[in-house]
């Protein structure tokens, strides 16, 4: 209960600052929190990354194994994305099967990677119709201080860049780096009072869960979008957010180039 009252007070404070175009942590409206990406932190995984986005922390681990292809794509590898919002990451997360927010999170990350064709799945066929590589992307939230979405998407592509296909373990020839050819980047905005802020923190989320995530590829094409939260979006805002998302994604993509 105490926390709820605090949240209410914070909410008023955040909204009044926002009216003056300011944020409580001093960031500009379109400023993303400091980002730290560490790759290869789980040697037992084929690829891994820890992303810190301000105080938000997410680990993504990539595991790979041979398996049966889907009948409609006999010569292509498979991507399976899963997210776990473990209770360790937030007082509001509860143990149990994935709820709608973790499913939504996993599916948005998955769409960005899949639709940008970031991984060249045609190079992951072992034996057509029989055996292909399956890529398991597991998103493991550690600390939810807001915008797990963008942190997870960034961690996923970072982990993929760091992934080695473990062919030797399965006696299928030599290990080789996972063929990654695009860098999808998700940018999430929080809308409030006719304004928007990029990369909302947990405290800022208290003013309302009105989010729009736009994922773009290295050529500034839009590859995935999701309006999330109970609100209605003005068309002009939508266009504005497309432009800012393209611009901010370019900044983040620079960080990925160093991996």
């Amino acid at each position: 209960m105490g926390e709820e009252i605090l949240m209410d007070i914070k909410k008023d404070y955040i909204l009044s600052k926002l009216k003056d175009g300011e944020r409580i942590d001093g960031r500009k409206l379109d400023e993303i929190r400091p980002i730290d990406i560490q790759t290869d932190i789980i040697p037992k995984a084929e690829g891994s990354a820890l992303v810190k986005l301000g105080n938000t922390q997410v680990i993504v681990g990539v595991k790979m194994q041979p398996g049966e292809p889907f009948p409609d794509a006999p010569d292509r590898g498979i991507i399976i994305t899963n997210a776990e919002l473990v209770p360790l990451a937030s007082p509001t997360f509860e143990p149990g099967p994935p709820d709608e927010s973790s499913i939504e999170l996993a599916r948005i990350v998955d769409r960005g990677i899949r639709e940008s064709e970031a991984v060249d799945l045609s190079k992951l066929c072992i034996e057509e119709g029989e055996k292909v590589w399956i890529i398991f992307i597991d998103i493991h939230a550690l600390d939810d201080d807001g915008n797990l979405m963008d942190a997870s998407a960034l961690a996923a592509i970072s982990a993929l860049l760091n992934t080695t296909v473990p062919a030797e373990n399965f006696s299928i020839g030599d290990n080789f780096p996972l063929p990654v050819r695009d860098l999808p980047v998700a940018i999430t905005s929080l809308l409030a009072d006719g304004r928007y802020i990029i990369d909302p923190s947990r405290d800022e989320m208290s003013i309302g869960h009105k989010l729009l995530t736009i994922t773009t590829d290295k050529n500034d094409n839009i590859v995935a979008m999701q309006k999330s939260g109970s609100y209605i979006l003005k068309e002009e805002k939508f266009y504005e957010l497309i432009d800012v998302s393209v611009r901010k994604a370019r900044e983040l993509r620079e960080l990925l180039k160093n991996i």
């Binding site: 769409r111 899949r114 639709e115 940008s116 729009l212 590829d217 500034d220 094409n221 839009i222 590859v223 995935a224 979008m225 999701q226 309006k227 209605i232 979006l233 003005k234 068309e235 939508f238 266009y239 497309i242 432009d243 393209v246």
Partner: peptide, 23 residues
């Protein structure tokens, strides 16, 4: 009259211009 957007999702690949045309 159309007032605002209530649901919006997307997958695939589209330029910003195409997205505006699609809307």
């Amino acid at each position: 009259k159309i007032e605002s957007i209530a649901l919006l999702q997307m997958d695939g690949r589209m330029s910003v211009e195409e997205m505006k045309k699609a809307t």
